[in-house]
Lab assay of single mutants.
Amino acid sequence: MSGNGNAAATAEENSPKMRVIRVGTRKSQLARIQTDSVVATLKASYPGLQFEIIAMSTTGDKILDTALSKIGEKSLFTKELEHALEKNEVDLVVHSLKDLPTVLPPGFTIGAICKRENPHDAVVFHPKFVGKTLETLPEKSVVGTSSLRRAAQLQRKFPHLEFRSIRGNLNTRLRKLDEQQEFSAIILATAGLQRMGWHNRVGQILHPEECMYAVGQGALGVEVRAKDQDILDLVGVLHDPETLLRCIAERAFLRHLEGGCSVPVAVHTAMKDGQLYLTGGVWSLDGSDSIQETMQATIHVPAQHEDGPEDDPQLVGITARNIPRGPQLAAQNLGISLANLLLSKGAKNILDVARQLNDAH
């Protein structure tokens, strides 16, 4: 009898209710805020589980004197976190989706994509230029951005401005803007500013005609071990179906173009009346040469937790077992079709030249 009692006690200790789920994140304040929001949602869904947040620095956090596009290494903000995932030191990792490459290392998958916040870019102005827009900034004003995508589009749109690289986390960039006289304004992701509670610093939100956004911008991705079915089931509740389908289309477009950090590629997606609209573009580094096109596809946005595919093969690095396969494939095909259209119009040449120029500098 006593033996059975011990077995029952052991089973209770090993039951999922007692389990601590370890969540990996970057150390920056924004990353911690984003991770806290994901953990809060998981806690609400699984009140019996405990969650421990483990923060670590990544290569991208450490190399702050070089433009991201020049470092010449993929997975700048993800490699150390993936290493911890691989060694079973954490069970899942919360990322900004735009930091996750469209091809993940073997053994990993994006197990959830959370509801997207505003994906557009924002302009934050130096205190002396508050009330201005990019259009009304004085001639030769210097605007800071760490992104080739932003610089290429904005140089084309605002030729009277000069664009220079600015690195560091959000706090560091804002301090550089406010305390030094080098920059009249800087460009940042609206979602990051909003998550930090800095709505009052948003001086201008850039519309798609001015600057399309990065693939996955404004959404959070939760990376897990691809074979860890328990954790895949656990994080599945975080999937937002519309965000998922938009981001599958965007990531398929980028992957098929073979774009990345070192080339200016941008997108804009919208879901309306059962249609998914995808606009994508590529630019030369100075913005003088560009190709942009829009395509659409009829896609039914499923309700969360309709029964999805059981075999769960990944699409552009994403596993969404609780979302039907048909809409996911339709979104992926839309991204591939748009990429093929741009490639047929000469996108590869623009991107190759951009890559060579970026590598040469």
Results as ranks from 00 to 15, higher is better:
residue 306 E to G: 08
residue 105 P to G: 12
residue 158 F to K: 06
residue 117 E to Y: 11
residue 262 S to C: 04
residue 142 V to Y: 11
residue 310 E to L: 10
residue 324 P to D: 15
residue 76 L to G: 09
residue 318 I to P: 00
residue 104 L to S: 10
residue 222 V to Q: 02
residue 351 L to I: 08
residue 245 L to T: 01
residue 142 V to W: 10
residue 66 T to F: 09
residue 62 K to H: 02
residue 128 K to N: 13
residue 306 E to Y: 05
residue 216 G to K: 00
residue 149 R to E: 01
residue 114 C to S: 12
residue 177 L to C: 07
residue 301 V to L: 00
residue 233 D to L: 04
residue 107 G to A: 09
residue 154 L to G: 10
residue 40 A to C: 15
residue 47 P to E: 00
residue 295 M to I: 14
residue 159 P to C: 13
residue 342 L to P: 02
residue 90 V to N: 04
residue 179 E to N: 12
residue 214 A to G: 08
residue 274 G to L: 08
residue 343 L to C: 07
residue 197 G to W: 05
residue 156 R to M: 14
residue 244 L to R: 04
residue 90 V to P: 01
residue 130 V to E: 15
residue 245 L to D: 00
residue 284 S to P: 00
residue 138 P to H: 09
residue 218 G to T: 01
residue 180 Q to A: 14
residue 342 L to H: 15
residue 284 S to R: 15
residue 345 K to A: 14
residue 140 K to G: 11
residue 323 I to L: 12
residue 76 L to V: 13
residue 341 L to A: 01
residue 167 R to P: 03
residue 350 I to A: 05
residue 280 G to K: 09
residue 181 Q to I: 08
residue 266 A to C: 02
residue 140 K to M: 10
residue 253 F to C: 01
residue 76 L to I: 06
residue 208 P to F: 14
residue 152 A to G: 09
residue 222 V to I: 15
residue 274 G to C: 05
residue 322 N to S: 07
residue 106 P to V: 14
residue 289 D to R: 09
residue 119 P to I: 02
residue 259 G to T: 13
residue 176 K to M: 12
residue 346 G to T: 08
residue 228 D to N: 13
residue 142 V to N: 11
residue 178 D to I: 02
residue 65 D to K: 14
residue 193 L to W: 00
residue 93 V to R: 11
residue 139 E to Y: 12
residue 233 D to Q: 09
residue 292 Q to E: 15
residue 131 G to P: 06
residue 187 I to N: 06
residue 340 N to W: 15
residue 70 K to A: 09
residue 131 G to V: 12
residue 81 L to V: 08
residue 356 Q to H: 13
residue 167 R to M: 07
residue 171 N to D: 14
residue 90 V to W: 05
residue 200 N to V: 07
residue 359 D to A: 15
residue 239 H to A: 13
residue 336 I to A: 08
residue 345 K to M: 14
residue 247 C to I: 00
residue 270 A to N: 03
residue 271 M to T: 06
residue 88 N to E: 08
residue 290 S to F: 12
residue 245 L to S: 00
residue 311 D to A: 15
residue 214 A to S: 07
residue 133 T to G: 06
residue 320 A to M: 04
residue 248 I to A: 03
residue 305 H to D: 14
residue 130 V to S: 04
residue 58 T to E: 10
residue 38 V to D: 03
residue 203 G to H: 00
residue 112 A to N: 00
residue 97 L to K: 04
residue 50 Q to D: 03
residue 98 K to P: 03
residue 235 V to I: 03
residue 138 P to G: 08
residue 303 A to D: 15
residue 157 K to P: 08
residue 207 H to T: 13
residue 100 L to N: 01
residue 307 D to G: 14
residue 239 H to T: 14
residue 92 L to M: 12
residue 120 H to W: 13
residue 310 E to A: 13
residue 94 V to N: 04
residue 64 L to S: 07
residue 163 F to T: 14
residue 120 H to T: 15
residue 127 P to M: 03
residue 109 T to R: 00
residue 123 V to F: 01
residue 48 G to E: 13
residue 85 L to K: 04
residue 161 L to C: 12
residue 230 D to Y: 07
residue 121 D to C: 10
residue 343 L to F: 10
residue 121 D to F: 01
residue 164 R to C: 10
residue 91 D to H: 04
residue 130 V to F: 09
residue 306 E to T: 03
residue 94 V to W: 00
residue 128 K to F: 07
residue 283 W to F: 02
residue 280 G to W: 02
residue 262 S to M: 00
residue 213 Y to P: 08
residue 110 I to A: 02
residue 187 I to L: 09
residue 234 L to T: 06
residue 69 S to L: 09
residue 274 G to H: 05
residue 350 I to G: 00
residue 61 D to F: 03
residue 101 P to S: 11
residue 140 K to A: 12
residue 43 K to I: 13
residue 145 T to Y: 00
residue 126 H to Q: 12
residue 43 K to H: 09
residue 123 V to L: 11
residue 231 I to G: 07
residue 49 L to C: 00
residue 357 L to Y: 11
residue 171 N to E: 13
residue 114 C to P: 10
residue 55 A to E: 15
residue 215 V to W: 00
residue 305 H to Y: 15
residue 55 A to L: 10
residue 197 G to H: 03
residue 295 M to D: 09
residue 45 S to R: 11
residue 145 T to R: 05
residue 351 L to P: 10
residue 163 F to G: 08
residue 309 P to Y: 02
residue 122 A to G: 10
residue 145 T to H: 04
residue 275 Q to C: 03
residue 345 K to Q: 05
residue 130 V to D: 15
residue 296 Q to S: 08
residue 268 H to I: 03
residue 171 N to M: 11
residue 61 D to W: 05
residue 315 L to P: 09
residue 124 V to S: 06
residue 84 A to W: 06
residue 326 G to L: 05
residue 356 Q to M: 00
residue 331 A to R: 01
residue 172 T to D: 02
residue 225 R to L: 09
residue 41 T to G: 08
residue 57 S to F: 14
residue 68 L to K: 13
residue 104 L to Y: 10
residue 245 L to R: 03
residue 180 Q to H: 11
residue 50 Q to C: 00
residue 279 T to R: 06
residue 254 L to A: 02
residue 113 I to K: 01
residue 305 H to K: 03
residue 91 D to R: 04
residue 44 A to Y: 13
residue 38 V to P: 00
residue 84 A to T: 11
residue 179 E to P: 06
residue 180 Q to R: 13
residue 165 S to Y: 10
residue 275 Q to W: 03
residue 194 Q to T: 04
residue 229 Q to F: 13
residue 292 Q to G: 08
residue 334 L to S: 06
residue 267 V to N: 15
residue 274 G to E: 15
residue 229 Q to R: 12
residue 233 D to M: 07
residue 169 N to T: 08
residue 303 A to F: 15
residue 51 F to Y: 04
residue 247 C to T: 06
residue 277 Y to V: 04
residue 66 T to H: 08
residue 257 L to V: 14
residue 125 F to A: 05
residue 58 T to S: 10
residue 150 R to S: 03
residue 321 R to Q: 06
